[in-house]
Design a protein around this nucleic acid. Structure first.
Length: 976
DNA sequence: ACAGAAGCTTA
DNA sequence: GTAAGCTTCTGTT
């Protein structure tokens, strides 16, 4: 053990009693073995190991041990025969659980430590001392006051049941004395539970006050005669002996001759199969499933361990069958299949990938289920394995319109079934055909399926679960718990893979070419809809989807742990699925009348400009064709300054036309205006009404979770993340996005979040200070660079600094900055040089990021998301430079994206806690839009701002404050 | 019917 | 200079 290591010591015996009393009686179904304390203990240890690995706790144990009392007789009984004498025998149904909990500890691959003649507390005290001497830290998992004397700057306590940390301040707060005086305090107060006498009439308050006054117990006893209160004085003088004895009893022994040293407690990876085997034997279905999921174990393939149970007559009191050196002993009876022994996460992941490609996928082996009994049998099988891949087949890509046509289940690799529900035949007939005979009625099938989908003990696995979640929610079925293979791939290979669709994942990981949807249901004109696909064909397609999804999960899930990406997946990806599903389902109201009126105005405006353009060029060309336009402008009319695009066409970009207009040319200005109007009309006012759902009357966008490289969301069908805002004309579109009657839209957006992230990660003192003071960041930058005071600064100076600030976020280049500011490249270079002289920390940050990306092939956000740049080492300088800029931007944009994801996950519970009914509707990268009842607006805004501003905590504390601006109005234009 | 380019909208 | 999605035009299948 060395400096920086962290030893976790669990007070096992303490938890046995606590768990037993805290939990309702529970017995193993098969034979009535009492197991409530075992379950409580296992849940606690599991939670501890999961949380501790998570960045959010901030502490990662490197060493871990569970400490138990050995027997009820210890050296304290020789000191004082009455010690703990009033303890009654443990309850009958707790006795057999002592041994089981030791088995549990070993199943967790954790050392199980105890020693004859000493209490667990003495061993804990000894190991804390050893850790401190090695320069390491220790955390005692207990909230027992007897252990508080051990708290120090490097030793703290933690209560996982109450999620409560106890350090020096907490001890002082609770007892009024620092940890080193806890012994004296306990000596004075005594303890009726342990039969420690103390001084009668003195409780914790008096004891603390006396110790404050006299310093320590010995001084107090020596000067007891000075005490004013007669009764108290007499009692202390009379019971001096008892106090001294009590002190000996409560003082923990820090020099127990232990058989193991902390080095022996180095934390090893969990042995999934071994732990699952034990949990299965205990018949803890939910925990078994959780552990199987997290460790990538196939619960269905692991046999329940044969755990010996002590008979009540031989097991009197805490465990007699174990010796102190049992730390690493393995009871042969409880070991898992030999193949998995000693697996590291990385090796398990590799083995899974190999196995997945080895076993061939046979699409003709899948079953078609048309009767309830068979369906019930398959569902029971899924309950048995604890894992099931699930997929829906529907009539539409839009989950808000889709009707269920069937679903498929795969409880084991290679074993999948399709349940047709809404297939039709005879579509060619005049009447459009009718339902295929012999299918299960939708209601009957879903009634059977629902308990499985909602069972906490069965993990549901899907590819792009959000779609199925929205569809199934409309049929009254919830899905939880779940994993999503698309998100697993996104977290593992963001930036490295082209896409995370099932087809490409199957090809990549399983070497399998999947049946294409188009082959089954046709494409384009030949598209018939899944409801018209023949059932045997549908079974092959849908069965394969479920089978492939399950196999992908088996390959991908273990890789998560192997690469340390569990918390990214569990905190930033998986919990967002139902949040986004609800946002999509709610949709937003769009006012048809407003759009229709705007559309008319735009049509008129465009038509008028069109005539003027025709007049100027003397010909009725297609203005929307850049090719025709370029030929006229630069060919026939011979306007100056023409440049070519990479395909050799004349460029007619807005920038270029603006430049020409600035030189006094009439035509380019009109073309720019015409383009703006036609763009607004075609993309927004004409297209949006078509997205209004006939049932809900609202627009339901689709938010993609796994579409961008940086971790941002994207929105499509329609894209509601690019609704115009910059021009007055464009903003009119926003007035059509409205709140329902009695509601307001609330828009809350992060102010300068990416620049704040930059100030934090690059650690730039001037920027951090400016943000802390709430200063104008661009003006501050300009002032630093050009030595101009912020007061009375010319707007052009500030504009240039602003362009540079944004340039940094985009991975600045002289070429880009020159373009942005319309200045010569040399001038832009000089600005950048000057900027780096004033902010050398930012140049360092950029260089570090490039070097890291080159070295590792990826960069990481503050929250650990990895973004891959496989081409970062390209020999092509422009490809390389592009990847460098992208990687610089990705850390900043990605961190900002992580922050708003965290806020989105927390906002719903925060609103519920505050008894507020606000509904989150949209996310636009740094902005969240809510629909809020009129009379709740005032109370809701602070809750939203609070959650958003504190979103990085407690995982990361940014060294820069986040600021959120929020406004309420009847439409989106006024709220923004 | 589809794919790519050009252009334009957002953060 | 970063990250997206949609519309139109154009050429190919």
């Amino acid at each position: 053990m060395k400096k920086g290591d962290h030893l976790f010591l669990v007070d096992g015996s303490g938890y046995i009693f606590r768990a037993y009393h805290a939990l309702p009686p529970l017995t193993r179904k098969s034979d009535g073995l009492p197991t409530n304390a075992v379950l409580g203990f296992c849940n606690m240890v599991w939670k501890l190991m999961r949380d501790a690995r998570d960045t959010d706790v901030g502490v990662t144990p490197t060493h871990f041990a569970v400490i138990f009392d050995y027997s009820s007789k210890t050296f304290r009984n020789e000191l004082y025969p009455e010690y703990k004498a009033n303890r009654s025998a443990p309850p009958e149904d707790l006795v057999p659980q002592f041994g089981l909990i030791r088995h549990a500890t070993r199943a967790f691959n954790l050392p199980c430590v105890e020693m004859e003649g000493f209490e667990a507390d003495d061993l804990i005290a000894t190991y804390c001392r050893m850790a401190e001497e090695a320069g390491a830290d220790a955390t005692i998992i207990s909230s027992d006051k007897d252990l508080m004397q051990l708290v120090s700057p490097s030793v703290s306590m933690y209560d996982p049941m109450k999620d409560h940390q106890i350090g020096i301040p907490e001890v002082i707060e609770k007892w009024g004395v620092p940890p080193e005086k806890m012994i004296d305090l306990q000596a004075l107060t005594g303890d009726s539970v342990d039969n420690i006498p103390g001084i009668p009439g003195i409780g914790p308050k008096t004891a603390a006050q006396l110790l404050e006054q006299y310093g320590d117990l010995d001084t107090l006893l020596a000067r007891a005669g000075e005490i004013k209160q007669p009764k108290r004085r007499e009692s202390i003088i009379e019971n001096t002996g008892k106090a001294r004895l009590s002190r000996e009893l409560v003082t923990l022994k820090r020099d127990v001759p232990v058989n193991e040293v902390p080095d022996d407690f180095a934390l090893e990876p969990a042995n999934g199969p071994k732990l699952v085997a034990f949990l299965k034997a205990m018949e803890f279905t939910t925990l078994t499933r959780r552990v199987a999921e997290a460790t990538g174990t196939e619960a269905g393939e692991v046999e329940a361990a044969d755990v010996p149970v002590e008979r009540a007559d031989t097991a009197h009191g805490p465990d007699m069958d174990e010796v102190a050196s049992a730390t690493t002993d393995e009871a042969g009876t409880e070991t898992a299949p030999a193949a998995d022994e000693g697996d590291t996460p990385a090796r398990l992941a590799d083995r899974r990938a190999e196995a997945a490609t080895a076993e061939k996928i046979d699409v003709d082996a899948y079953h078609t289920i048309t009767d309830l009994q068979t369906l019930t049998d398959w569902i029971a099988e899924a309950f048995e394995t604890g894992v099931v891949a699930f997929d829906t087949e529907t009539t539409s890509l839009d989950p808000m319109q889709a009707e269920l046509v069937g679903f498929s289940l795969a409880p084991r690799p290679g074993r999948a079934a399709y349940v047709p529900l809404g297939h039709r035949q005879g579509a060619g007939d005049l009447l459009g055909g009718g339902p295929v005979e012999g299918q299960l009625p939708v209601r009957e099938a879903l009634a059977a399926l629902k308990p499985l989908m909602e069972a906490p003990s069965v993990l549901k696995i899907a590819q792009n679960l959000k779609y199925d979640l929205v569809v199934m929610s409309r049929y009254g079925v919830d899905i939880a718990p779940y994993d999503d293979t698309m998100l697993l791939s996104y977290v593992l290979d963001g930036g490295a893979a082209r896409g995370h669709g099932m087809d490409s994942l199957a090809e990549k990981w399983l070497g399998h070419k999947t049946i294409q949807f188009g082959e089954v249901a046709g494409t384009g004109k030949s598209f018939i809809g899944f409801e018209n696909v023949a059932i045997d064909k549908a079974t092959r397609y849908a069965g394969e989807d479920a089978d492939v999804t399950l196999r992908l999960w088996q390959v991908l899930k273990p890789r998560l742990a192997a690469k340390g990406l569990v918390s990214v997946y569990e905190r930033l990806e998986r919990p967002l699925v139902p949040v986004l599903a609800r946002m999509e389902q709610r949709g937003i109201s769009v006012d048809r009348q407003i759009l229709s009126r705007l559309s008319g105005e735009l049509a008129q405006g465009a038509a008028a400009i069109e005539e003027e353009i025709y007049g100027l060029i003397g010909e009725r060309i297609n203005i929307g064709s850049p090719k025709q336009l370029g030929d006229i402008l630069f060919g026939r009319m011979g306007l100056p300054g023409g440049s070519k695009t990479k395909t050799g066409q004349w460029s007619t970009s807005a920038q270029l036309l603006e430049d020409l207009a600035a030189e006094g040319h009439e035509l380019p200005r009109k073309i720019v205006d015409w383009r703006q109007l036609t763009k607004l009309k075609s993309t927004y006012t004409d297209a949006l009404p078509g997205y209004i759902n006939p049932q809900t009357g609202r627009v339901h966008t689709n938010f993609a979770l796994a579409a961008t490289t940086t971790g941002r969301l994207s929105s499509s069908d329609p894209n509601l993340q690019n609704i115009p805002v910059r021009t007055a004309e464009g903003r009119k579109i926003r007035t059509a996005f409205v709140a329902d009657k009695g509601y307001r839209l609330v828009s809350a957006d992060y102010s300068q979040i990416e620049l704040r992230v930059l100030a934090h990660v690059a650690d730039i003192a001037q920027l951090k200070q400016a943000f802390a003071e709430g200063a104008d960041i661009h003006a501050t930058t300009a002032s630093e660079m050009f030595g101009v005071p912020v007061e009375g600064m010319p707007s052009e100076v500030r504009r240039r600094a602003k362009a540079i600030n944004f340039g940094i976020i985009y991975g600045i280049s002289a070429f880009g900055l020159a373009n942005q500011l319309s200045i010569p490249r040399e001038e832009a270079s000089a600005y950048i040089k000057k900027y780096f002289e004033r902010f050398p920390g930012i140049r360092d940050y950029i260089e570090e990021t490039k070097a890291y990306a080159r070295e590792n092939g990826y960069v990481e956000t503050v929250f650990g998301r990895r973004i891959h740049y496989p081409e970062i080492r390209s020999p092509n300088p422009s490809v390389r430079a592009f990847n460098e800029r992208a990687s610089i931007n990705a850390r900043l944009q990605g961190t900002a994206a992580d922050i708003i994801r965290r806020a989105m996950v927390r906002i719903e519970p925060a609103l519920a806690d505050a008894k507020l009914s606000a509904r989150m509707l949209l996310q636009v990268h740094d902005e969240l839009i809510f629909e809020v009842a009129d009379d709740e607006v005032e109370a809701t805004i602070p809750v939203i701002c609070e959650v958003m501003e504190n979103a990085p905590m407690p995982a990361r504390a940014l060294s820069v404050p986040l600021k959120v601006d929020a406004r309420a109005a009847h439409n989106w234009d006024e709220a923004h």
